[in-house]
């Protein structure tokens, strides 16, 4: 292998770092998308035997959105291996303990249970807020698009924008707003 070919190989198999903002996103649908980048399925050179997966940095995993009453109904099961060691943790309890855990388990569960799964998971970096260490932040060169637009809260709008918003009706003069 010549020096040129060697550099070409490094270039083709260079790992790209992607960023994913999990604010207000469904973690289980996002996991499908993140998994493709982790495995390298989005690349034309993909083959199950070649190691072409990318890194994904997930930020704001503390602000994920679950459907319906999933926070109260979804249960995470764990067994220590000892008799009576089974525990059932509700999604909101798990999220209180570790805000990255639901996202991590969602990605782990969409991947096939083969020997590569643990190594692929090592390329996933999850942070509960947008406070990412500088060492990881400087690698990021691409951003994965979110599944749904993030709605803007009323208190995030400037007061002029709120004033300018079209009103259907005015409150009566003697109406008391509570």
């Amino acid at each position: 292998m010549t020096a040129y070919k060697r550099v070409q190989q490094w270039n083709t198999f260079a790992r790209v770092w992607h960023l994913y903002d999990a604010t207000w996103q469904n973690p289980f649908e996002s996991a499908q998308r993140i998994m493709k980048y982790l495995k390298g399925l989005h690349k034309p050179i993909y083959h199950p035997l070649n190691d072409c997966g990318d890194h994904v940095v997930v930020i704001n995993s503390g602000e994920i959105a679950l459907l319906g009453d999933e926070w109260r109904k979804r249960v995470y099961f764990h067994h220590t291996g000892y008799p009576g060691g089974a525990t059932w943790t509700l999604a909101w309890e798990l999220h209180d303990k570790d805000p990255t855990m639901i996202m991590k388990k969602a990605v782990y569960n969409v991947m096939d249970g083969n020997l590569q799964r643990r190594y692929t998971m090592q390329r996933l970096h999850i942070y509960p807020d947008d406070d990412v260490p500088e060492k990881i932040k400087q690698n990021i060169t691409n951003q994965i698009r979110q599944l749904r637009p993030v709605p803007k809260r009323l208190d995030r709008y400037a007061p002029e924008e709120v004033q300018r918003f079209p009103k259907v009706m005015d409150w009566p003069k003697n109406y008391i707003l509570r």
């Binding site: 903002d21 951003q143 979110q146």
Partner: peptide, 25 residues
């Protein structure tokens, strides 16, 4: 040969991440 850098928008080189317009669907 293909590499992750072919057909890449050069505009992405100067973008600050996280970027809101790149994040939106």
């Amino acid at each position: 040969p293909w590499s992750p850098f072919v057909n890449r928008d050069p505009h992405l080189n100067v973008v600050e991440f996280p970027n809101e317009s790149l994040s939106r669907p």
